[in-house]
Design a binder for these strands. Structure first.
Lengths: 250, 250
DNA sequence: GAGTGGTCTAGACCACCTC
DNA sequence: AGGTGGTCTAGACCACTCT
């Protein structure tokens, strides 16, 4: 049984979260079953209760377990592993840190070329304008889960050249934020479609399989559309969720 | 200066959260300004650091402050940090007013019966509990576009009896609001699925056609889940969009 | 009554940031 | 160098749940 690596730089509570996450995936704890109590985990891994609670907080935030007051922490449905549609962030930014699954981004193509009509319209540019495109595939645990093409006005795209995002090592959102472009408003449309041939090929699917298609336009504070993408997602691999919350107004 | 009421049953960390929240509202700390450090708050209110951190966690979860590693907690800027998701109003209810299209709701079934496991789990009720269900089809311009089943705790459903919603003449959201139940938080999961037979039948589709499946849990201010639904949508007929906007708050 | 999580204390060491 | 939050320990008391 893997214990806590005391000499590792990784915080204990994260190590424990990984361990429990793996146990859940391995079916050591069934869905709906209670995982060991906080005190039990303290004993098992020789950790203090604060640390264990930090772990449980993290697991709950990932929707992997659900804490029930005075009864324990229960395993949620593991398929509910989700990429949250973070509204303030990009739609599909990697949640690689929180979920223990390996997420790999592969860049297929990027560069400047004439924008397809769909993209030009979304970006409020004249049809026929040229722009920057970035085509990527994201895989989870080696399975291709998502294909996307972003289109940007040429000047926006030029900020990306030389950045790690073009090697799949950085999120587009991070790269654009570094250039001062933050999302102020966004509109996303979601549809279920039969997989188009080329996308089916990339996602390792039969043509015609159901896919989630997400079209997104992001605007900055001045209202300028600076990023449009069309993304096809295998929702059998990735759960797409939208969390909404009313908030207290200061 | 209001301190911590030691004899109050209200947890200290909540009391402190209220105090800081009030200070922010009163403008004691400006937007973007740093609030006192954790150790400073410990001194000011004579609390231990764990308690103060619990407070800050709560405030961050309400998006009132933003914690920056090793720099402090900053009052959130409502312009950039707070977003209104139109999804709070119900994914599927806004369309009627905006588009001039004729929307007809047909109620197939409603009543009290044992909840399916999926619904019981979503509503945080024991498996096997009974609950209220409401199955509906919505058509646009005569074309069936959406099939949904809502499940609610029995006491919530009982508020609906005699209401026009059960004749398809009122939105569920309206009916529940009238009973004082408003959506405070919601989580929705979106997937593309092949149409199940029964749904395909209702939506006038071939079995296996791509459909959008939306699962939704709504919670009130106390965090209680009061409505769960699973909905299948013909996204070729209905556009499903998520709009996010920075709130313009002076 | 035993077990659980909720809350709380009073310390500690560290990496990192700002000065 | 001093301050900050990140992490961690080793306890404690309580209200509630389960049996």
């Amino acid at each position: 049984m893997g214990g806590i690596a005391r000499e590792s730089p990784e915080p204990y509570y994260q190590q424990l979260a990984r361990i429990i996450e793996q146990d859940i995936r391995d079916g050591k704890y069934a869905v709906g079953e209670r995982i060991p109590s906080e005190t039990e985990l303290c004993r098992l891994y020789d950790l203090s209760r604060s640390t264990v609670r930090e772990t449980l907080r993290a697991l709950e935030q990932q929707h992997l377990v659900k804490m029930v007051p005075r009864r324990g922490a229960y395993v949620s449905n593991p398929r509910t592993e989700s990429w949250t549609l973070q509204v303030t962030q990009g739609f599909l930014e990697t949640q690689s840190r929180s979920s223990g699954r390996a997420i790999v981004t592969r860049v297929l193509r990027w560069g400047v070329e004439s924008l397809p009509e769909l993209a030009a319209n979304a970006l409020d540019l004249p049809v026929g304008s040229s722009g920057f495109h970035l085509e990527r595939i994201r895989s989870m645990d080696g399975q291709p889960a998502l294909h996307s093409i972003n289109w940007m006005p040429e000047d926006v795209g030029s900020h990306l050249i030389g950045k790690r995002v073009l090697e799949g090592q950085q999120s587009l959102n991070e790269a654009l934020s570094a250039s001062g472009l933050t999302v102020h408003a966004a509109r996303r449309e979601v549809a279920a479609v039969a997989a188009p041939r080329e996308v089916a090929h990339y996602l390792d699917l039969k043509e015609g399989s159901p896919l989630l298609r997400i079209d997104s336009v992001s605007r900055d504070a001045s209202g300028r559309a600076f990023d449009f993408y069309r993304s096809h997602v295998r929702s059998d691999i990735v759960t797409i969720s939208v969390d909404a919350e009313a908030r207290a107004v200061p």
